[in-house]
């Protein structure tokens, strides 16, 4: 009952909330609003011409397609990694656990040039793929590789704690009721971690959609083929086409906000599920 009590007896509410809102407005909200205000100065026709130009449309398809694919790969391998980190013991596990966060900590430009050096046609792996006729760097496949790299920790780090908290008793109950190991994993464990897995997938996808640094070094950046949407914004800016850059940015922002909403809903689902199974 007292948990919801007004806690205003602690001093500093006005000061901290005031500063928080001021700083948030100055640094984030007002500058972000510039995108929409600038877009609003264009006529609907101008906006439509900008955002429906063939190059832009090709970039959406590439950006979202590659992001979706990367998030799916991450969902599978992220789940496997979370599984082995929680369920198995093996030498070097602590190190693996610590290094999972590398893509969070490694600057994207560094990841970008490293991946390019690996998959270029004379690169560490590229040289073996070249004779097979497989090219990764400077093709959409390269973009996929970069997006897999940056998205991996999202899935592992959302699934891992849920898997960790999942009591072994659920599987024991399933086994005692006659379920095979496969049945108890697919019918008991997977449903329990599904919200977390979906959340991790959505986070990895959202991050991939906006990614720039790690991609441009390996993408080749060919218009209509391997040019991602953030790069189009930069190109337009460099040509002083502020209106064009802003219109496309507005589209991306709206999509980001929609994703943010979806992720918030997923996390609420995840939290609810966690409580029920606790």
């Amino acid at each position: 009952m007292t948990a919801t009590a007004s806690r205003r007896v602690l001093p500093g509410f006005g000061l901290t909330l005031g500063f928080t809102i001021l700083y948030l407005s100055l640094v984030v909200l007002i500058p972000l609003s510039a995108v929409f205000l600038k877009t609003a100065t264009l006529s609907p026709e101008q906006i439509w011409n900008q955002i429906s130009a063939p190059r832009a449309v090709a970039s959406y398809r590439l950006t979202f397609g590659a992001s979706l694919l990367a998030a799916m790969v991450n969902a599978v391998f992220g789940l496997i990694l979370a599984w082995i980190l929680v369920r198995y013991s093996f030498p070097g596990k602590k190190l693996v656990d610590a290094l999972i966060d590398l893509p969070f900590a490694l600057p994207t430009a560094v990841a970008g040039i490293a991946l390019a050096a690996i998959y270029a046609k004379n690169g560490w792996i590229g040289q073996f793929l070249e004779p097979l006729g497989i090219r990764i760097a400077f093709t959409p496949a390269g973009i996929l590789v970069a997006l897999i790299f940056i998205g991996l920790p999202f899935v592992v780090r959302t699934v891992q704690p849920v898997l960790q908290d999942l009591d072994a008793e659920f599987e024991e109950a399933a086994a005692s009721l006659g379920a095979t190991r496969w049945q108890s994993v697919t019918r008991v464990v997977l449903p329990a971690i599904l919200p977390a897995l979906t959340t991790g997938f959505a986070l990895a996808f959202a991050r991939a959609v906006g990614e720039y640094g790690s991609v441009i070094f390996i993408a080749g950046n060919m218009p209509l083929v391997s040019e991602i949407t953030p790069l189009i914004i930069i190109t337009k800016l460099e040509q002083y086409d502020y209106a064009g850059a802003t219109a496309i940015a507005a589209v991306m922002l709206l999509i980001s906000f929609a994703l943010l909403l979806v992720i918030n809903l997923l996390q609420a689902w995840s939290a609810r599920r966690g409580r029920r199974e606790a």
Partner: peptide, 18 residues
């Protein structure tokens, strides 16, 4: 019983609640 207001009264006397 819980929810009868006894803790709230105590916290009001202490000044932790207004």
């Amino acid at each position: 019983p819980s929810g009868c207001g006894k803790t709230t009264l105590l916290r009001i006397i202490a000044g932790l609640e207004t």
